[in-house]
Amino acid sequence: MLKKSILFWLILSPLVVVILFPFGVMFVSAFRPREELFTYPPTWTFSEFRWANFAEMWVKTNFGQALLNSLYVSVLSTLLAMILSIPAAYALSRYRFPGKRAYRTFLLMTQMMSPIVLVLGLFRMMVALGLVNTLNSLVLTYAAFNMAFTIWMLQSYFSTIPRDLEEAAWIDGAGHLTSLLKVFLPLAVPAMAVTAIFGFINSWNEFVLALTMIRSSDGFTLPVQIYSQVAGRYQIEWHHVMAATMLATLPVAIVFSWLQRFLIRGMALGAVK
């Protein structure tokens, strides 16, 4: 047993190194004094744990504003996508209607298209709507892009919730709405949480659309803000960039670890009989 798991970790170790290396560099660079950034040969040690990097960075890069923007866009777009996806997924998993197959194929096909292909069209659409350079343009486009995925994902989860349960509720005297609220939705919570996490992370990390739609720096989301610290600058403050990157990955890590119990429960959902 132990031997086996050691063997598996050995096989996995190259992968682990590749994944962890950037994080290591990020962590070390974020806490180093500026002078130690480019020592040669490179080392993993640092002379002091410089928290001040974060404070300086926060002010210099206008991090707070970007964080708020990112939160606003990610939370609202995830909410919007979920509110629209849940009924759609429910209908897909429970009802027969004409064009159902075509609809599902369509959902899948939208997933094959990269947002970059559509960026120009979307930009012109936002111009027409008067939404360019507002965060709401991102809320709308992120929600739209996420929906294909969230509908698909929710639909496959919903299909694992036995229809019998709702039928039993009807026979017990519940109307459609009551059975939905008291029987179906409580069982679907894990699935919805998992889907919401993915939607949130997608929105949080999105870059191309944010770069296109937002013109002024007060509206930048975190990825764009961090990018602007690197791109087209004569001198790059790497320790600030790394500190910002680290703070930007933090909310995702927190959301993920908080919701991961749902992730596991969601995956075990089919086992409940």
Partner: peptide, 27 residues
């Protein structure tokens, strides 16, 4: 169905997984 005043026992029982036995029976 809900107005027919019938009770039904399903093949796979169809118990509400998120309720206790008491919750299931009192629903």
């Amino acid at each position: 169905a809900r107005e027919r005043d019938i009770a039904m026992v399903f093949q796979n029982y169809a118990l509400y997984p998120h309720m206790t036995s008491y919750g299931n029976m009192s629903f």
